[in-house]
Design a protein around this nucleic acid. Structure first.
Length: 492
RNA sequence: GCGCCCUUCGUCUAUCGGUUAGGACUCAAGAUUUUCAUUCUUGCAAGAGGGGUUCGACUCCCCUAGGGCGCGCCA
């Protein structure tokens, strides 16, 4: 069942002749991680990457940990860390062990860099930022590839004196580096295109490139599932791994998610942060299912609850091409999961959503009771929790309703007169759905009218809208007194 | 500019050389219905273009085009 590991074994065998370090041993449980940098919020792409890692860990019985890549001290913020943590929790993606903060491990990263330096596998580069900018501009102007030219690679570090320096990896300049990717297949990079990357900055802090490799190794990470934007980095990271003679993890680079227009997912689509989806009223279960299917498939199956996803998930079925967001499909799926949810769970969702709004809105106990009681009818009609809350508005307060445009159209003078005529029948009826319906039906029959002709005015007066959950159920939910107050308000 | 990746209905995808190219969403029509919705039925709609390989290509190879990613003392 652990086909991902089988892949790794195959790659290892196919690679026996190369100078590729050994792959992770395959008799261990897989170790997965999600490693976001806290420079922004958890966006939809990151959420999907986290989901895939989580699912694979659950599927294989492996472990899944969260590592915050906060080595960029300038841009990392505690707010972003919180947003990521909250996003993960909301998505229902729990992780094993303590959250790892990468910056706390800087000493270890530095030690690895020092080791590389002492073994002659890395060197000091005294070029200044200005030197490098000038270099790149020249390269660009000359139409040459923009890469560090290795100007300090073979120089005597003594020439730098006591000037600040960075430590760069002495990368192999000939041959090729092959990334064996479970999703994309073997991707070959010519080494002369990979420059000597910076390992340690001039202030002595480690770069991301060094830190990931060291942390993944120290954490025993066996499978690296991440966005395809890291594919190029994999080749560079492989070079560090190789110099350290560490085992190579199985790589799975997942294609990125694009916006509905095919371009990069941007804030303009209003849908970058995962919490935006929460606030738009999408359920976590919906997001897990939607994000899973966006780039991963299992035959013709579309509706895949998380438990099923855990059973089925594999790396091989991840698609190779970038996918676009489709909000219509998201809505459809959300409608499905709303209908599947219990009345109490949905009530809690609505309550939470309203309380998160600005200004927060707190529902009274009676309002909540009505909401739960009306939920069977309400949930059939909503695509999002936001819609559900709006449709339930008429339950939240007492008294005559203000009419919306459509309801106003329904309540013509004739309709109002009709209302006055039905009232006695209603007042005489037992106050439950079936009895009320029977009363109105016989009234309609007796007057040669269709049920709908009588029901619409009643609905408009009762809810203030021209459409609502089943009328008689709503009358039962509101109760006799409250219902009659609303109906009398428009009876003429 | 250089490197790498991607390309089946509008969108997400199935297909692992031989299918009337299937499913889902959207959209349209119909049925059910007290409104709206749900549900059900039916329909519209695809292999980027050009070369090969092969008895036979959506499927394998090459080229072109389009899109994306990367090229920091960011991650």
């Amino acid at each position: 069942m652990q086909t991902g590991l089988l892949e790794a074994r195959l790659h290892k065998a196919a690679n026996a002749g190369h100078h590729q370090p050994s792959t992770m041993t395959d008799n261990k449980k897989p170790v997965l991680r999600f490693a976001p940098s806290p420079t922004g919020y958890l966006h939809i792409g990151g959420a999907r990457t986290a989901l895939f890692n989580w699912l694979y860990a659950k599927h294989t019985g492996g472990t899944f940990s969260l590592r915050i890549e906060d080595t960029d001290r300038e841009r990392s913020t505690p707010e972003a860390v919180d947003a990521i943590l909250e996003g993960m929790e909301w998505m229902g993606l729990d992780w094993d062990g303590q959250t790892v903060y990468q910056f706390a491990r800087a000493g270890r990263h530095r030690a690895v860099a020092e080791q590389l330096l002492s073994e002659g596998k890395a060197y000091k580069c005294f070029a200044t930022a200005d030197d490098l900018t000038a270099m790149r501009e020249e390269q660009k102007a000359a139409g040459k590839p923009m890469r560090y030219d290795g100007r300090w690679r073979d120089r005597d570090p003594g020439e730098g004196g006591d000037k600040p320096y960075v430590v760069r990896l002495k990368a192999r300049q000939t041959g090729e580096t092959v990334v064996h990717d479970v999703v994309l297949g073997d991707v070959t990079f010519q080494n002369d295109q990979l420059d000597d990357m910076v390992l340690l900055r001039s202030d002595g802090t480690p770069t991301y490139m060094l830190a990931v490799v060291v942390d993944d190794h120290d954490m025993g990470v066996t499978h690296v599932i991440r966005g395809a934007d890291h594919l190029n980095n994999a080749a560079r990271q492989l070079q560090i791994i190789e110099q350290m003679s560490w085992p190579v993890p199985v790589y799975a680079h997942v294609p990125l998610i694009h916006g509905p227009d095919g371009a990069k997912l941007s804030k303009r689509h209003g849908a970058l942060a995962i919490e935006a989806y929460r606030d738009m009223g999408y359920l976590p279960e919906t997001m897990r299912n939607y994000l899973l299917r966006l780039g991963w498939s299992h035959g013709d199956d579309e509706t895949i609850p998380t438990a099923q996803a855990i059973e089925w998930f594999n790396l091989e079925s991840i698609g190779k091409s970038p996918a676009r967001m489709d909000f219509k499909k998201l809505d459809n799926l959300n409608g499905h999961y709303i209908r599947e949810s219990s009345d109490h769970a949905l009530t809690a969702e609505v309550v939470a959503l309203l309380e998160r709004q600005a200004p927060p809105r707190v529902l009274s106990a009676p309002a909540r009771q009505r909401l739960t009681a009306a939920m069977p009818g309400l949930k059939e009609r909503a695509k999002t929790i936001l819609e559900l809350a709006a449709a339930a508005e008429f339950l939240f307060s007492d008294g005559a309703r203000a009419l919306d445009a459509a309801a106003e159209k329904v309540l013509t003078p004739d309709a109002r007169a009709l209302l006055a005529q039905v009232l006695p029948a209603l007042e005489a009826a037992a106050w439950d759905g079936p009895a009320l319906e029977a009363a109105v039906r016989s009234f309609a029959d007796g007057n040669g009218m269709k049920l709908g002709q009588v029901a619409q005015p009643l609905r408009a007066a009762l809810t203030g809208k021209a459409s609502s959950p089943p009328l008689f159920e709503m009358m039962a939910v509101l109760g006799r007194d409250e219902s009659l107050v609303r109906l009398r308000a428009y009876a003429a």
